[in-house]
């Protein structure tokens, strides 16, 4: 009796993998052979961003330092924590600050969400910058990846802007004066400084209009732009044959 049970238990994983339900979701069995290892990548919308096979050079931690993927993970964490914070926030000068205070005093895990969002934002700026340094110093920008490097520089700028627009939202002294200083810098644009600054702020000073503008930029327009360009960035990595790697020895000699 017990040995029969044991035998059935032993067969259970295989039965689950063969079941209609498992197959309807994952379509193939466990990827322990080359065929299923290919299928698992091709059949999943999330995994198919990856190639079926990667260069061993790509897997060297000392080559990539994991910085690009870390930037992506921080961005995903920012979407999640930011989404939660959006439930509790209104971009008006009367309410914004009060909401942030309530996060710290009366919302369960509110402070944790806000802290995680803020630290992830700072870390993402740092990770994207270090990722750029990694790609430069390994020569990853070279042909055929020239334009993906240009896209990367644009993504760095968007990351700066995302962090900068979010900086105003708590509406405390730190954010108010930082955005005043930051937009003053934009106001020094030659010939049209006042116009640029007014376009950013929706007014001549940092006030309710600026808060609304920065909020919409921060939660809708800039993230949408970042996601689209990130899609192009990743797609081009695949089209250009994966991450850069040293040329095979016989090609260098040519």
């Amino acid at each position: 009796m017990i040995s029969r049970l044991r035998q059935q238990l032993r067969q259970l994983p295989e039965q689950v993998l063969q079941s209609n339900i498992w197959r309807s979701i994952f379509r193939q069995g466990y990827p322990d052979n080359d065929e299923n290892r290919s299928l698992v990548v091709m059949n999943s919308v999330f995994l198919h961003f990856h190639p079926v096979k990667v260069k061993t050079n790509t897997l060297r931690p000392a080559y990539t330092l994991g910085l690009g993927i870390m930037s992506l993970f921080l961005f995903l964490i920012l979407i999640f924590t930011g989404g939660v914070l959006t439930f509790l926030y209104l971009p008006t000068i009367e309410q914004a600050y009060v909401f942030i205070q309530e996060l710290h005093t009366s919302v369960p895990f509110g402070a944790l969400m806000r802290n995680a969002h803020r630290w992830a934002a700072h870390l993402m700026v740092l990770a994207v910058f270090l990722h750029m340094m990694r790609v430069f110093y390994t020569g990853g920008y070279k042909h055929p990846r020239e334009f993906n490097w240009v896209l990367g520089v644009i993504l760095l700028v968007i990351t700066f802007l995302l962090s900068f627009t979010g900086y105003l939202l708590p509406w405390d002294q730190l954010s108010f004066w930082a955005i005043t200083v930051g937009t003053n810098i934009a106001g020094y644009t030659p010939f049209m400084g006042a116009e640029v600054r007014a376009f950013l702020l929706g007014s001549t000073t940092v006030g309710g209009e600026a808060l609304l503008r920065f909020y919409v930029l921060h939660v809708v327009l800039l993230p949408a732009l970042l996601i689209i360009l990130l899609g192009v960035h990743f797609w081009r990595i695949r089209k250009d044959g994966g991450l850069s790697a040293p040329l095979p020895a016989e090609e260098v000699e040519k």
Partner: peptide, 19 residues
């Protein structure tokens, strides 16, 4: 994460620093 007093356009922070 830091949270100072509510924004006050009449009270300039010194120093006022960008991010």
């Amino acid at each position: 994460a830091p949270l100072r007093e509510a924004a006050n356009p009449n009270l300039t922070e010194n120093p006022a620093k960008a991010p």
